[in-house]
Write a protein that binds this DNA or RNA. Structure first.
Lengths: 225, 225
DNA sequence: CTGCAACTTTGCATAGGCTGCAATAATTGA
DNA sequence: TCAATTATTGCAGCCTATGCAAAGTTGCAG
């Protein structure tokens, strides 16, 4: 039961609607014509706002298209991951974190569509996925825009590593480096999942492909050590 | 003994010189003022060319700053990697390939500076390294511009995997996916090395940090399997 | 329900990246 | 030395993006 859009004043509801209208227009036009054959003017016109207003909502054309950035799940879930213990394979845990982080509708599985909430949101996500499938450069842009998320994930991994082996906290630098390395490997897994998904024409839920990629990662780790 | 700049006509030598002048001006001005507080006009002026000429040499301001893209070493070296055999740890081999690919001066160790060839090239590389150290975003740009290299490396890894285990060629798709996964992990290692380098203030040769990062990668692989 | 405060939308002006085109200039090879 | 090739440049123009101030909305207290 998401809180979105219930109990909001007219002002905020309008804002939400405008935001979505712009995103929708962006993604739809980019799907039809390609990212750089659409102008902000055209998008704004399709969304019934002035070009200037477009830039009040998004800092760049790109950002209107690539969608919301991932966010770590709630602290309870994070804490469960952190304290899962050293026996629990870390890659599996990370995969689940990522699946949650990257927003069900965008990345995910079932999607019970009866919520009034996500009227257009669902369709927007589908369009965006199709767009990304045909434009790897957009996926690359999306990845590049995740610096903040990278740092957050890195911090969580640090907690996990410290919890698994308290010894490590005696060398904070090494701990941090290790966390960052694992974060980068996780991102490699994410990119891999996406590549696989795209090369198969976008069939199947991304979430399960992500699990597969992380399994292959595990397998590679085994074979190389 | 590099072939560069020997036995070239006046025309090509001028072209080379102009190219370097532009790169130098770009990097120097960006160091002083930051990437987006320098205009192409200013760079062009500093390099004594018209702004229009700037864009005859580089497709974007960015590309003048980030420098040449990495290239795989010669086929002999690549073939040695491909046929190293399954007992040879693949990550070590990849690390050496990367070190060669990313251009000694840019990434590397000693650099015997007595070549007449790299008069300004050496200083340019140093400046660029310093610039990258303080601007992680530029390093990110550089990484993003390596799509072609990613594919090349992926192809080499495919050959290596097929050579190590000919069975794999019976499932070309799986082979390709595996190669790509390893390539992405290798890039993770590269980013990690660079992060470490930058966070330590740019001390020490990048090549050895790359080896360290790949060793940590190996260590992580062992610990997680 | 009125009117003020807070916020949003918009137009306008401007900077800066980037491209096509056509004129001019330099280099090369015969 | 001349003609072909290639390089440089200016110019006009399109597009993204930002600051600023005017005009329009919404929300809320009286």
């Amino acid at each position: 039961m998401s809180v979105t859009e219930e109990e909001l004043g007219l002002r905020e509801r309008k804002r939400l609607a405008t935001r979505r209208a712009i995103q929708f227009a962006s993604v739809e036009l980019a799907s039809e014509r390609g990212f750089d054959r659409v102008t902000v003017d055209e998008i704004s016109h399709a969304a019934n706002v002035s070009p200037r207003t477009f830039f009040n909502y998004f800092p760049s054309k790109e950002s209107a298209i690539i969608g919301e950035l991932p966010e770590l799940p709630d602290e309870v879930t994070v804490e469960r991951f952190v304290s899962a213990g050293p026996e629990e394979p870390i890659l599996v845990g990370i995969a689940e974190l990522l699946i949650m982080a990257i927003d069900d509708a965008d990345f995910g599985g079932e999607e019970s569509g009866d919520e009034v909430d996500g009227r257009g949101a669902h369709r927007l996500h589908e369009l965006r996925r199709a767009l990304f499938k045909d434009n790897p450069q957009l996926f690359a842009m999306r990845i590049s825009s995740m610096h903040k998320f990278e740092d957050e994930l890195s911090a969580v991994l640090e907690r996990r590593l410290a919890h698994d082996d308290p010894e490590l906290t005696r060398e904070p630098e090494a701990l941090q480096r290790r966390a960052r390395l694992i974060m980068l490997v996780a991102f490699a897994g994410m990119r891999h999942a996406w590549t696989t998904w795209a090369s198969r024409g976008g069939a199947g839920p991304l979430a399960s492909l992500l699990r597969s990629s992380f399994a292959e990662l595990q397998e590679f780790a085994r074979s190389t050590s």
